[in-house]
Simulated assay, not measured.
Amino acid sequence: MDATLVLGQQGRLVIPADVRAALGLAPGDRLHLHLAGRRLVLERQQDAAAELRGFAASVPASRSLVEQLLAERREAAARE
């Protein structure tokens, strides 16, 4: 699905109704916007959070990212 949007005077964009319907967007939904190079990526916050949870799910439960970060910081401090 493609759509052309026009940036309004106050920097506002209107998402066309068919796009909103396809994505299940409703008035009041909160969206997350981030830049990917020179592209704007707009997604529902719950979708962004689900993606992050998916990344974290691949980390074994036996691995402590906090402990790994602390160890890396200690090594860096020892080199200084």
Rank of each mutant, 00 (worst) to 15 (best):
G24Q: 08
G28Q: 11
D29G: 15
R30N: 06
R30I: 05
R30W: 01
L33R: 08
L33T: 13
H34W: 11
A36K: 14
A36T: 10
A36L: 12
R39W: 03
L40K: 03
L40Q: 08
L42G: 10
L42D: 01
L42N: 12
E43N: 15
E43A: 10
E43P: 12
Q45D: 01
Q46E: 03
D47T: 15
A48C: 10
E51K: 00
L52I: 12
L52D: 02
L52Q: 11
R53G: 01
R53H: 08
G54I: 12
F55W: 08
A56R: 14
A57V: 12
S58A: 15
V59N: 07
V59I: 06
P60S: 13
P60N: 03
P60A: 06
A61I: 00
A61M: 02
A61K: 01
S62G: 01
S64N: 01
L65H: 12
L65C: 08
V66K: 01
E67M: 02
E67I: 00
Q68C: 05
L69V: 00
L69G: 02
L69E: 03
L70K: 08
A71V: 04
A71G: 04
A76C: 11
A76Y: 04
A77S: 09
A77Y: 06
A78K: 08
R79A: 04
R79Q: 07
E80T: 05
E80A: 08
